[in-house]
């Protein structure tokens, strides 16, 4: 009986909860002890506003990652979406809510483009998304000769800076995207197919389903999240800057890998979000400790690799234990 309990605890610690949770807790304790400014409401609110963009991107990437793909275009696509929505508001006088829809459509288009490259042209997702990244950056720069588009309508600022029921709107956006992603992955046939694409694509084909369609849709979804993130970002800055999202794709992907898994066919929305939070807090904590930027970058890289290695090791260990158990 005691052994059984031990096994349950082990399963909970290693399998049911994403490994990143434990690393996250350790890190938070460390930052809280090191600096009293870390564990404050102000900092938390600050994190929410800053972090919404990254978290939303992470939630899109995790869907692509579960299918076994890599998404490196969403940072640039986000910049482009911002430019397009700013442009339509300034030049066509479109009301903000229509501009938001335009932004999402641009995101979906680019996501779908990724999906089409990967499925029909058979291009590895790494290369395909890197290619669309280039296209998106180019277009974003070309829209206003590389300049920022400013002078957005007053009301638009509410999305990034306003609150609803005392909760910042970016936080609502995170919650919304999180719930939608969770429901999609857990409660719909689409979710099952996403897991099937990563777990055993052949099985999905053998069951007579158009596997390519679901793969394209997974990329489209990631594009959509880039469109949503663009709204928050542009509204917070009250301007669209063509290269604002560069580098974001790597953070988002690292978050998805951290919270999800290296193995295709595995991962959850919660894991993706936790991975994003991990990266946010790491950045924020290093800032609060007052570590110089160049050192921050080096520490950031080191911690990231350590965390990923740890998660991978845990995953392998779990797999091994399972194999041994089965052999008994």
């Amino acid at each position: 009986m005691k052994e059984f309990n031990g096994k349950q605890i082990r399963q909970f610690v290693l399998e049911k909860v994403p490994t990143v949770t434990w690393i996250l807790i350790v890190m938070m304790v460390y930052f809280s002890v090191s600096n009293s400014n870390f564990l404050t409401l102000d900092n938390a609110a600050n994190l929410c506003r800053q972090g919404a963009i990254l978290l939303i991107l992470c939630l899109g990437v995790i869907v692509v990652k579960i299918t076994g793909g890599i998404e490196l275009s969403n940072g640039a696509v986000m910049s482009l979406c911002g430019m397009v929505m700013a442009w339509v508001m300034v030049n066509l006088n479109l009301p903000p809510f229509l501009a938001i829809i335009v932004s999402m459509i641009v995101g979906i288009l680019f996501g779908t483009l990724n999906g089409v490259f990967v499925t029909f042209m058979g291009i590895p997702s790494f290369v395909a998304t890197l290619g669309t990244q280039g296209i998106a950056v180019g277009l974003a720069l070309g829209m206003n000769n590389g300049n920022v588009i400013g002078g957005l309508p007053e009301g638009f600022s509410a999305i990034g800076n306003g609150t609803l029921l005392n909760i910042p709107i970016p936080l609502w956006a995170i919650i919304l995207v999180f719930v939608v992603t969770s429901v999609l992955l857990n409660k719909t046939p689409f979710g099952v197919y996403v897991y099937a694409l990563g777990g055993n694509e052949e099985a999905l084909k053998l069951s007579g389903k158009p596997a390519w369609l679901y793969k394209v849709l997974a990329y489209s979804y990631s594009g959509l999240t880039a469109g949503i993130a663009a709204c928050i970002l542009t509204s917070r800055n009250m301007a669209a800057q063509p290269t604002v999202g560069l580098g974001m794709e790597f953070e988002a992907f690292a978050g998805a890998v951290l919270g999800g898994s290296y193995i295709a066919g595995k991962g959850t929305a919660l894991g993706g979000a936790l991975g994003g939070i991990f990266i946010l807090i790491l950045r924020n904590g290093l800032n609060i400790l007052g570590i110089p930027t160049y050192l921050q970058l080096a520490i950031f890289g080191t911690v990231l690799i350590t965390a990923i290695v740890l998660s991978t090791l845990v995953e392998r260990r779990v797999q091994k234990m399972r194999d041994e158990e089965r052999e008994e």
């Binding site: 099952v192 897991y195 099937a196 777990g199 055993n200 099985a203 193995i263 595995k266």
Partner: peptide, 10 residues
Amino acid sequence: TLLPFRSVAE
């Protein structure tokens, strides 16, 4: 041709 991480029913 099974999905290892998914449930029997799925």
